[in-house]
Design a protein around this nucleic acid. Structure first.
Length: 93
DNA sequence: TTCTTGACGCGCA
DNA sequence: ATGCGCGCCAAGA
């Protein structure tokens, strides 16, 4: 199973790659979109390659994901994740 | 079975 | 930095 790496924010593309699907970024999105409610998967730690939340800004989901991330200590710079707190996105899992 | 849509990604102007 | 187009894979109409 492809579980999401814990303790760090990652992107759909990276997850897909780790799962052996180099071009399956959208797949990951589809999977997360179809997640059961009780799922323990940290979906909120998955963002797109731009480092932004893949929801319309201001939408309910957007707000929730951002809220969760910030709760975990992830800082944002405007609408984009401030990778400076990790070093650089290439150091993703 | 074909067309459209969607929690994506990358290259180019 | 911003917008646009094309490629990718799956699910639903």
């Amino acid at each position: 199973m492809h579980s999401i790496p814990r303790g760090r924010v990652t992107s759909y593309g990276v997850v897909a790659k780790l799962a052996g699907l180099p071009r399956g970024a959208r797949l990951v999105g589809h999977v997360l979109a179809n997640l059961p409610e009780g799922s323990a998967l940290p979906w909120h730690r998955v963002v797109n390659s731009r480092g932004t939340i893949s929801f319309p800004i201001g939408s309910e989901r957007y707000r929730e994901q951002r809220e969760r991330l910030m709760t975990e200590g992830v800082s944002f710079r405007s609408e984009k994740i401030d990778w400076r707190q990790f070093g650089w996105p290439s150091t993703l899992d």
